[in-house]
Simulated assay, not measured.
Amino acid sequence: MATDPIETINVDLEIIGIPQAAGMPPMTDTYLHVRRRQDGSAQQAKLGLPAYQGGPGPAGIPGAIHKGDRSTSQLVALQSTLGVDQLNWSYRNVDNNSQYVWDGSTFVVYQNAYGARGLVGPAPVLQPGTVKYDGVVEGDAVMEVTGPDGGPYAIHLDLPEPPQGEQGDPGPSGPIYTSVDVVGTPTEGQSLRHQTSDNKLHWYNPPTAIEEYVVPPNGFPAAFTKASTDTRAQLVAITIPAKTYAYRFDFAGGVDVQAKTGHQIDIEIRRDNATSGEIVGYGKGQDGEGWREVALRAHSDVAIQPGSTEGVVPVNTATTLYVTAVKKVGNLLGWGVRPDLAQLRIRLTRVV
Rank of each mutant, 00 (worst) to 15 (best):
D95N: 09
K132W: 07
W102F: 15
N97Q: 14
P172S: 12
P160T: 08
G129C: 10
N97E: 11
S90Q: 14
P152G: 01
P172V: 10
G150L: 02
V131S: 03
V125S: 05
D134R: 07
V136E: 13
P152Y: 05
S98K: 00
I155M: 11
G121I: 13
G150H: 02
G147R: 01
G151S: 09
V145W: 15
L157F: 14
G151P: 03
N112R: 12
T146E: 15
A123H: 09
P160G: 02
W89V: 00
N112C: 07
N93Y: 06
L87V: 10
P160Q: 07
V131T: 05
G139K: 12
N97V: 08
V120S: 13
Q167C: 03
G174E: 11
D85M: 05
L157H: 12
F107Y: 11
H156S: 12
R117A: 13
L119N: 15
Y91R: 05
E161K: 08
P148H: 08
G151I: 11
Q127S: 14
H156R: 10
V136D: 09
N93D: 10
D85R: 09
W89A: 02
D140G: 05
Y153D: 01
Y91F: 14
N88A: 11
Y100H: 10
G135Q: 13
Y110L: 09
V125C: 04
L126T: 09
V120D: 13
L119A: 12
T146W: 12
P162C: 03
Y133D: 02
Y91S: 02
K132H: 07
M143P: 03
Q164T: 07
L126M: 14
T130L: 15
Q111S: 15
L87Q: 07
W102V: 14
Y114C: 00
